[in-house]
């Protein structure tokens, strides 16, 4: 007899409840896993977008754009809304009063959020890898690029949430920051061959993610695998260093 997902989730809960969190990283993951229904919905949403896209043989540029935007908003909006809710519930104030350095608390939280987002997007990425004529190298590059952008998107979302406001307001704030970055990364128009926008696109992590998706889907990317890998490493490094700049503002925001 096949086990239902609800049964599996329910039987896993007692084991989860024995795991004791010490850092925000573990806490974030436990909070997510302890709500199986919400997790299932989070897993389903990217699939609902990805499967028709690939089954309908959408043009690789546009399919890559949609999947890149999905990664960006999953990370940034998820982190911003979580931070705003934490502020409203008093969690941020309590975190600010612990003796741990603020940057370490927020960096741990950002990493935990990115991992949760990666789990959420994993089925969609698996579908991309399974249904597309992707090489092992391009597949690995895509996975690393997605992880790096999720880290950065979470850091950006937390930083934007430091401006204050409730979950609805930070959602709009994130859109205002994210939309120009996606545009400048050439996601809507392609990366120009020259001019200032070409220079800006070189520094925009979302343009490399877009290229990674296009390559995995069998299209012609603007950047090769090596450039995407280097960009992913730099992006992850920046994402983990960003909390040192804004962590105190996040924890002290009202």
């Amino acid at each position: 007899m096949a086990l239902s997902s609800q049964h599996v989730a329910t039987s896993a809960l007692p084991r989860l409840r024995r795991v004791m969190p010490r850092a925000m990283f573990t806490r974030e993951i436990l909070v997510t896993l302890a709500r199986p229904r919400a997790l299932l919905i989070k897993l389903a949403v990217p699939l609902v977008l990805t499967v028709p896209l690939l089954a309908g043989h959408a043009p690789t540029f546009w399919a890559g754009m949609l999947l890149s935007v999905l990664c960006a908003i999953t990370g940034a909006i998820g982190a911003a809304v979580t931070t705003a809710r934490a502020r409203e519930s008093g969690l941020l104030t309590r975190l600010a009063l612990t003796p741990r350095p603020a940057w370490r608390v927020v960096a741990s939280w950002v990493a935990g959020g990115a991992l949760v987002d990666a789990v959420q997007l994993a089925p969609a990425i698996v579908v991309v890898l399974a249904l597309s004529p992707v090489s092992t190298v391009d597949g690995a590059v895509l996975v690393l690029s997605v992880l790096a952008v999720l880290l950065l998107a979470n850091a950006l979302g937390s930083a934007v949430a430091a401006l204050g406001g409730g979950p609805g307001e930070v959602l709009l704030d994130v859109a205002i920051v994210l939309a120009p970055l996606l545009f400048l990364g050439g996601l809507f128009t392609g990366v120009p061959r020259d001019g200032w926008r070409w220079i800006v696109a070189q520094a925009d992590p979302f343009s490399y993610l877009h290229s990674a998706f296009i390559a995995a889907l069998g299209g012609s990317p603007a950047f090769d695998a090596v450039a995407i890998l280097i960009a992913a490493a730099c992006t992850a490094l920046v994402a983990l260093m960003l909390p040192a700049v804004f962590a105190r503002a996040v924890l002290r925001s009202r």
Binding site: R17, V19, M20, P21, R27, L30, V31, A34, R35, R85, S89, G90, L91, R94
Partner: peptide
């Protein structure tokens, strides 16, 4: 009272 999500009191 801060929200603790679905964590147990011990966690």
């Amino acid at each position: 009272v801060a929200e603790e999500g679905a964590l147990t009191a011990r966690q």
